[in-house]
Amino acid sequence: MKPIKFVIALMVFATALSAQASPLLNGLALEQQFNKDRYIAAVYSETLANSTEVVLDNNTPRSLEVRIVADSMSARRFRNQWMEGIAINNGGDTLTSQADNMVTFAKLFNGRLKKGDHLTVAFAANTGATTVALNGVTLGKIEDRKFFNTLLRAWVGPVPPSSEFRGGLLAAGNVDSSLLSRYEQLKPSGDRIAQVRAQVESLNAEQEDKTEVAAAKPAPAATKPKPTKPKLTADIPPPTLASIGDKPASAMKKVEAPKPSKPKPSKAALAREMEEDDEDEAPLTADLILARQIYHSSLLRHTFPYIRYPKRAQERGQEGSVRLKVTIDSKGDVTDIQTLQDSRYSSLNRAAVDAVKRAGPYPAAPPQLAKGNFNFTIPITFRLPD
């Protein structure tokens, strides 16, 4: 009887360990644009933590989840915002090595995301694979152990969407009860799940047809190989927070009064504009994605020296995050500045806009991107030393 009891004890112990190893909700964060709620992001991990280093442990199974709050969202806009965060929170070597994976990831996003949708990005520590699913329907898988952290750094890296956003995700399980309740109530309908499944099956069938047609074509005659272009490489120093103290004279351009222009559209109109899909977006390639990431990072690097922490805000202990949408033309001249997310303090909001005005003109766009205007976002964090 004793051996049997010992086996049973081992089984109970293994079951307990398995239960303990289930993913735990580490934190939640609400994303807003133009003061409108967009989605709630979540980080799950076997180990609850309030530090970036622990959450980025590649030996731990983890997952990211996004639940859509807005009635409708452009999947492409959502993806582009995520990729901007990747560009400014990962080193040059990572951006270069992950460019092909970013193409695969980006092509998974089509159409529109609807209220209640669950987007899940799960990392399997035993295989290193990252699986992307929408409402339980698998969209794709990326077999690269380093890819998941490339995505996660966009949320918890040195320049997150906002300091509040990162703080919410790094809550070590201590989440806001009202936000958690709202998060748990967001669920896709049965019809929506069926719609997503049908769309994915249709795309997969279309891809299989293309593969069969390509396989049926006769092999092309041998030709002299074309010289390959050297792959772009990124060399991007990390951006900094808003600075306190004196700046060199070169960084203290006078903020000029804005030129007379036609009345700006309302925030509602701007929100609608943000929801429009970019129908004329160029076909995604690794070089194009990397060019966008490098250029976007260079624009932020160009901006940060011009950010000034208002002295009155320092004296009052005021801190906060501001996120701006900036439009520049092909020469780098600023044509528009809009506030996607503001802080509680008007002085910090003005300081962020003034920094962009001082920073212009920006470096001209590279040839691959020098067609019309270029839009990019700038997250600026005003934080006092501890």
Results as ranks from 00 to 15, higher is better:
Thr228Asp: 14
Gln341Lys: 08
Ser163Thr: 11
Ala171Lys: 07
Gly372Gln: 04
Thr211Asn: 12
Phe376Tyr: 10
Ala219Ile: 11
Asn50Phe: 09
Ser72Gln: 13
Val159Gly: 07
Pro239Ile: 01
Ala75Ser: 12
Glu208Asn: 10
Thr47Arg: 10
Ala352Gly: 03
Leu151Asn: 03
Asp246Gln: 14
Gln314His: 05
Gln185Glu: 14
Pro366Phe: 00
Ser243His: 08
Glu31Gly: 11
Asn50Ser: 15
Gln293Ile: 01
Val213Ile: 14
Ile378Ala: 08
Lys247Met: 06
Glu281Pro: 05
Tyr44Gly: 05
Arg38Ile: 09
Ala99Lys: 02
Val159Trp: 07
Gln32Asn: 10
Pro158Glu: 05
Ala49Met: 03
Lys115Arg: 11
Phe123Leu: 02
Met11His: 08
Thr303Ile: 15
Arg308Ser: 13
Pro161Arg: 00
Leu108Thr: 03
Glu206Met: 15
Ile8Phe: 04
Glu143Val: 07
Thr138Trp: 07
Lys259Glu: 15
Thr131Gly: 06
Ala172Val: 01
Glu184Ser: 14
Ala125Trp: 02
Arg145Phe: 14
Val159Pro: 12
Pro220Trp: 00
Glu212Ala: 14
Ser72Lys: 14
Pro160Ala: 00
Lys2Arg: 12
Arg323Val: 04
Lys36Trp: 10
Val43Asp: 08
Gly140Pro: 06
Ser163Ile: 13
Arg112Asn: 12
Ala154Arg: 02
Lys231Asn: 13
Asp329Lys: 02
Asp191Glu: 15
Met83Gln: 10
Lys231Tyr: 14
Ala194Pro: 09
Asp93Met: 07
Glu319Gly: 02
Gln314Ile: 11
Glu184His: 02
Val54Pro: 14
Thr339Leu: 06
Gly317Pro: 04
Ile142Arg: 08
Arg308Gln: 11
Glu212His: 08
Ile244Ser: 04
Asn90Lys: 08
Thr377Ser: 10
Thr60Asn: 15
Asn50Leu: 07
Phe374Cys: 02
Asp93Asn: 09
Asn50Pro: 05
Glu315Asn: 10
Pro23Met: 02
Trp82Ala: 15
